[in-house]
Nucleic acid binder design. Structure first.
Lengths: 200, 200
DNA sequence: TGACAAACATACCAACTGGTCTGTATGTTA
DNA sequence: TAACATACAGACCAGTTGGTATGTTTGTCA
């Protein structure tokens, strides 16, 4: 009857690994926990992934990458007014992450970036690729905004995109270590004020 | 003859622990490596520190705290023109960290913050205290700048300080995961441009 | 000099780690 | 039906971890 979806076990392991690494970091994450959480065994894990490292790579590529696109990129990819849309996305996700409580665990991509970038070149290149896409998306939107007269002409879209993405890393990091919702909101509002200063 | 300085062994262990945790993170750091690096033994370590956790706390309090003060706070603590001094400090440390290559390992405080804040409340409070001091120092300098007519009156020193510190976290994180000196410099310049926009 | 405690060194331990090995159930194809 | 590959399960392994228990040296003070 219901034919088992292909790679269903692989997906369960992937999601469990994402959760485990998100909570405990990659080095602190345990394969034993992961297989237990996924309701499977070591045999299955090592059948689908060459090792812990490859599992970590797959989490970045197959879980975090799509998550990033859906959450941050789609909102501004086709924007005709990037400053307004950026501000809207910022305020929305600061709010939802504070309300859901996820803000205390930070950004999954940034967590892995800070932990693994200096230790493992495979992680670093994969993570850097995602951040590069992120910045490119913002820079393109800003350049488009300049063309449409919605953004000041004398700014560098690349520089601004680099700062905005870096600020996001820092703001979510601030929320994580301070657990201060107001502080995180304040920093977010300061970014919005900065974006306003880029209007023509 | 040369009387051994008090707590010399403790200091050697502290410095070795700082280096080990800076490289491998707290969870990934090994006490065996630390005592080997310090040229001592487990007995000495557990004589001076109750355990790995206490050793980590001591690294935050006795190593990273003073380092932060000397590097970032002293420069603006007595500043009469905070925007200029902030820009100068920013450009200087971006430059020296790029030249020394330390930028690929990120900020020691931010590294620990991202890794340990969600996992250990003792770490979190100690780290948060340092960041709070950091923000307070910038906010005071900005407020002082307003009084002296060097900073716009209609900005919130606290909001700006929160964003500047968060941006620093993000910029050093960007340098770490991208290993792109130009990108890090660009983001730094964008912060400087932002600071310029706060002039009266 | 003797007594006592602080400052280490050494040997050792249980727990857990990532990873491997072998076995088995389940399709799939010839 | 026979042959074979895929997808797991579960026992097992060597190595490393943080931590402890015990022994030894060193400094201090009476």
């Amino acid at each position: 009857m219901t034919t088992k979806a292909p790679a269903a076990t692989r997906n369960k392991i992937l999601m469990a690994a994402f959760a485990e690494f998100y909570k405990h970091g990659f080095q602190g994450g345990s394969l034993n926990h992961i297989v237990e959480m996924a309701g499977t065994t070591k045999g299955a894990l090592f059948h689908h992934f060459a090792g812990k490292q490859e599992l970590g790579y797959a989490v970045v590529d197959d879980v975090i990458g799509p998550l990033l696109k859906q959450r941050w990129l789609d909102a501004v990819a086709t924007s005709s007014d990037p400053l307004a849309d950026l501000k809207r996305a910022f305020r929305q996700f600061v709010k939802t992450d504070i309300e859901s409580g996820f803000y205390v665990q930070g950004c999954p991509l940034n967590n892995l970036a800070q932990e693994m970038s200096p230790l493992d070149e495979g992680f670093r290149t994969r993570i850097d690729k995602l951040y590069a896409i992120w910045r490119k998306c913002y820079a393109d939107a800003l350049a488009n905004g300049i063309k449409r007269g919605k953004v000041r002409k004398n700014i560098s879209p690349e520089h601004v995109a680099a700062l905005v993405v870096a600020s996001q890393m820092g703001i979510w990091g601030t929320g994580k270590s301070s657990r201060n919702r107001e502080l995180m909101t304040q920093a977010g509002e300061a970014v919005c004020a900065y974006l306003d200063s880029l209007k023509p």
